[in-house]
Design a binder for these strands. Structure first.
Lengths: 339, 339
DNA sequence: AGATCAATGTTAATCGATTAAACAAATTGA
DNA sequence: TCAATTTGTTTAATCGATTAACATTGATCT
């Protein structure tokens, strides 16, 4: 419980200046082998711990990044966070994780908080309804930023995400190939780019196949949302023979609801999800879905931020990972089936 | 992209000293209403942002907390982290989240990193195989600590967790009441208190009911682990008519495996999980389980740390939340059934 | 009138590490 | 031999906010 040792303590003990100690501990070449090793030994012995707060004041770098996600409790984001951590750990950086809970006010307050903390950069999954002004603001702070999963601008700044549009188109094409002509979309209710992109993929596909493109039923992106959206979906006319869901949770909820209503999933109605959560392989019937790879996305985002920190002048990056269609029984037996 | 304003800038503009500005912005009573509001206006106008790094150097408080979990990607921990965040947010603190990945070396390195960062306190879910020496060490640093979910010492320091032992006993009693005499435990393979407590609950229950207590099959605490443990379980002699699983993931994996083997879950063999994940209510059959409340645990842990920070001298706390038995079809129709 | 007090600021030291510039000593080059 | 260079270390300023101790002013009291 004694005072935490500082450079000055070590310097006194070694009979050198604090400057020497500072340089020695960081492996500066100007310090001789012997003094360095002597200093390191003393540091070890007295239990010296580097004070990043003090260093920050001088250097301006905190070796810390802000990570803002819209819902930490969501397992999808948990994977994402794990991926970011994977990338940061090797670089010796640590993430300040905050939960915006889809609230613009909280997002604003937390951004301020992270600035106060002098984070070196930000990885941001913006809350729904965020817009370009936020991007302007962040850039005016001179804070390196990676937009993750959702973007504020499709073209400005670094951006790492999934190709939602392509994913939905792949699902649609698959269903069309199976002969479906009435395909619906059970979609997220929030307004953000990841949602808009799915919808755009759906609409574009419908047009391309010459089908009705108005069969969209908005619903919360949760299991509960999926359950509750079944009636609205079945009430559509013509009644859809296939439905692409916002994500697996919606699909699983919807399937539970349809099962309860005695509707045969796979034959009477085909269901496609998005994400390929573990459960998808074991649901009844197994769920056709798009394998998104949240951990990979998080890791890419972390790495992108590290590159940006290393070189603020490099041109903006857009990294958009392609989801992979995984065909299972919830679309019937028309295609090659992965067990 | 201009220089970030400091107290000195504001002081110059307002024609007062930095001391006055500092006090004014923090609402110190020594500053008159008028100067305070004048200063606040200037701060607002020039876009002043508090520099916690600088303040930390002087005050020794970073308003930051270290949060170490053993597997961020695990949805259970995601809920836990969300709960911690819930508690911290109100207090204006932010969590530095790190992932120990069940590795003692990483845990050690990350603890050091967090100390360098001058976190005000720690919330730690220790990796398996951690022991008392770690607790001694942390206490020697004078860093406030809350042990979460797993403990290093059952009696020393603050501790927030779930009553795993009671949970397993409740499950056992329920199964015994239904007439089961051959009850097995499909358990975690890691050595930590949360695992030991479940096992203790199982053994104690078996003794209490005068049953064989050796029917324990260790397995990883994952869905995959559950799937792979089915053969070993069925090979036990006498063959168990009921199995209590380490958690829901194990139970769900096990059920999938048993289903595939053509075994009737609920009648031929009863299955009980632990956690009550969302999926448990919708599996086939619905899973009897113990509702653990990770978000609540996280929140309690966060609050406990806040109390500890407010008063380092208060006596250690032990908060152990009771899980609640939720009876569903995976145990057959012998009891009251929650749909 | 002089002492006392309250209200409101200011001065200056401080937290711990970094780093440009200065300096001393040893080595090399011509 | 003397200047130039290299090597190793020190000096001292600096980052931005906090805070104990001190200063000023005007009001109040006896």
């Amino acid at each position: 419980m004694t005072e935490r040792p500082t450079l000055a303590h070590i310097a006194a003990e070694a009979g050198v200046s604090t400057a020497t100690v500072s340089m020695a501990l960081r492996g500066h070449t100007r310090i001789s082998r012997q003094t360095r090793s002597r200093i390191c030994q003393i540091a070890e012995r007295v239990g010296y711990v580097y004070d990043r707060g003090a260093a920050l004041l001088r250097t301006g770098r905190s070796e810390t990044v802000g990570l803002l996600v819209s819902d930490i409790a969501n397992p999808f984001f948990a994977e994402l966070v794990a991926g970011v951590d994977d990338a940061l750990e090797g670089a010796g950086k640590v993430a300040l994780l905050v939960n915006t809970r889809e609230s613009p006010e909280r997002q604003k307050a937390l951004l301020r908080r992270l600035r106060e903390q002098s984070v070196d950069g930000l990885i941001l999954c913006p809350v729904a309804e965020s817009d370009l002004r936020l991007l302007d603001e962040i850039q005016s702070w001179g804070l390196p930023l990676v937009q993750m999963l959702r973007h504020l601008s499709p073209t400005r700044g670094d951006y790492v995400s999934l190709d939602y549009r392509m994913g939905v188109e792949a699902a649609f094409d698959h269903l069309a190939r199976l002969g479906h002509r009435h395909i619906a979309f059970a979609g997220g209710a929030l307004r953000h780019s990841a949602s808009a992109q799915r919808l755009a993929g759906f609409r574009a596909s419908a047009r391309r196949h010459g089908l009705v493109s108005g069969m969209v039923v908005p619903c919360p992106a949760t299991r509960q949302g999926g359950r509750e959206t079944a009636p609205a979906l079945l009430a559509l006319s013509p009644r859809p023979t296939a439905v692409i869901c916002f994500n697996d949770l919606v699909a699983l909820g919807l399937m539970a609801s349809l099962r309860k209503a005695g509707i045969a999933i796979g034959s009477e109605i085909a269901v496609v999800g998005f994400d390929n959560v573990e459960e998808a392989a074991e649901s009844d019937p197994a769920l056709t879905t798009l394998a998104s790879t949240p951990r990979a996305v998080g890791k890419e985002a972390g790495q992108a931020l590290l590159r940006r920190l290393a070189d603020p002048e490099r041109p903006p990056e857009r990294i958009v990972l392609p989801p992979r269609l995984i065909v299972r029984r919830s679309c019937g037996f028309g295609g090659a089936v992965v067990p």
